[in-house]
């Protein structure tokens, strides 16, 4: 396995073995990168906010080639959502996840897991708009890009999530 494949496997381990949803998976890794993961994934802006084709490739490799991760596709009314799950429980005790202390990474992942996929998407996008695109009026921009998702209550939840992750200093001022 490559270094990145090991890293994504460790992300799943820190998430107690599974992460639900492709969109959530992308945003979890994006926000971990902002916390200091140092996985080296390049993110660009796509339909659901920050997205890394490299991360998608690594996951695809773990599922199809390495076969250490299972992707269960759960049918829904209009398609499916994915569950990424480690095929076996890792026994390795880790001190860190990338450059993040293990306990901090685990706590951050659990904090994100408690939120909906839409709220995590909004949090990642707020961070992106403020820190990468340097958009001063990020709230207006967020509502323009995501008119059907960026409701005031969900924006508040996204900001609260960034606060709990210690990423709010960069995102709250509008």
């Amino acid at each position: 396995m490559s270094e990145r494949e090991h890293l994504v496997t460790a992300v799943l381990q820190a998430a107690d073995g599974q992460i639900i949803g492709r969109i959530r998976m992308q945003k979890v890794v994006y926000l971990l990168e902002q916390l200091g993961l140092d996985g080296g994934f390049w993110f660009s802006y796509h339909h659901y906010g920050p997205y890394s084709e490299e991360l998608s490739d690594v996951l695809d490799g773990l599922v199809k080639r390495e076969k250490t991760v299972e992707e269960e596709q759960v049918p829904t009314e209009n398609g499916f959502y994915s569950i990424y799950r480690l095929r076996s429980s890792p026994t390795q005790v880790r001190a860190s996840l990338g450059r993040l202390p293990w306990d901090r990474a685990k706590a951050a992942i659990q904090t994100m897991a408690a939120e909906t996929s839409v709220v995590i998407e909004l949090a990642a996008t707020i961070y992106w708009l403020r820190m990468r695109e340097k958009v001063a009026d990020w709230k207006k921009e967020l509502k323009i890009r995501k008119p059907s998702k960026a409701s005031d209550p969900d924006i508040e939840k996204a900001l609260a999530l960034l606060g709990r992750l210690d990423l709010a200093g960069c995102a709250c001022a509008s």
Binding site: G21, R24, E77, Y81, S117, S148
Partner: peptide
């Protein structure tokens, strides 16, 4: 109007 739940979110949106 498509009923969509993102990932496993409980609240649907209509597209």
């Amino acid at each position: 109007d498509l009923r969509e739940c993102q990932d496993n979110d409980p609240e649907p949106r209509y597209v």
